[in-house]
């Protein structure tokens, strides 16, 4: 048994320590908002926050995560996440939507850290998040818009 702290709740999971967090979230805990896209840290669909820092859950192993605050899309509710969601809806960012959990997790971590990101900040924070639907132009605009929303 491994004890994880996910979205503020303690959860016991019967997984082997080398199991990727992604599959524990999805299969053991039913938190399917975190998506499987590649399994090898090459797409960003599985992005979660580990102690507030965006990380690829497909390459994070549960044995290393005891005592770490894990936040998934289901639990992302801070001011940055709320602003990102509002901007995403306003600009109708998602197409198929499958990458968007990861996009939102990366973008909200960026915004929490850098309230007024430049295009270069956005490039650096978002380059690992693929969107096969190429919703990128709207993602960029929506991050800038979310920054405005946060400022109020």
């Amino acid at each position: 048994m491994i004890t994880l702290t996910i979205n503020g709740e303690r959860r016991e999971v019967p997984a082997a320590p080398d199991t990727p967090l992604l599959w524990v979230l999805r299969d053991d805990l039913g938190l399917t908002g975190t998506k499987f896209g590649c399994g090898v840290a090459s797409c960003g669909a599985c992005t979660v926050h580990l102690d507030g820092v965006p990380a690829r859950s497909c390459q994070s192993f549960v044995g290393d995560l005891e005592g770490v605050e894990i936040t998934t899309i289901e639990g992302a509710a801070d001011a940055a996440a709320q602003a990102i969601r509002a901007a995403w809806a306003e600009l109708e960012v998602p197409q198929c939507g499958y990458c968007q959990s990861g996009q939102i997790m990366s973008a909200s971590a960026l915004l929490a850290e850098t309230p007024r990101p430049t295009d270069a900040d956005i490039d650096a924070a978002m380059e690992g998040n693929l969107c096969r639907c190429a919703s990128y132009a709207r993602i960029r605009k929506a991050i800038h818009r979310a920054a405005e929303i946060m400022e109020g």
């Binding site: 999805r26 299969d27 039913g30 399917t32 908002g33 975190t34 998506k35 499987f36 998934t72 899309i73 289901e74 990102i84 969601r85 995403w88 809806a89 109708e92 960012v93 998602p94 939507g97 499958y98 968007q100 959990s101 939102i104």
Partner: peptide, 27 residues
């Protein structure tokens, strides 16, 4: 307004085949 935007900003839970979960399901 796009009918699917809100769900797709909340994890798209239950929307995609990849996320199917059922009692007794095997993989």
């Amino acid at each position: 307004p796009r009918v699917d935007v809100q769900r797709k900003t909340e994890g798209g839970v239950g929307m995609f085949g990849m996320d199917m979960r059922m009692e007794g399901m095997v993989h």
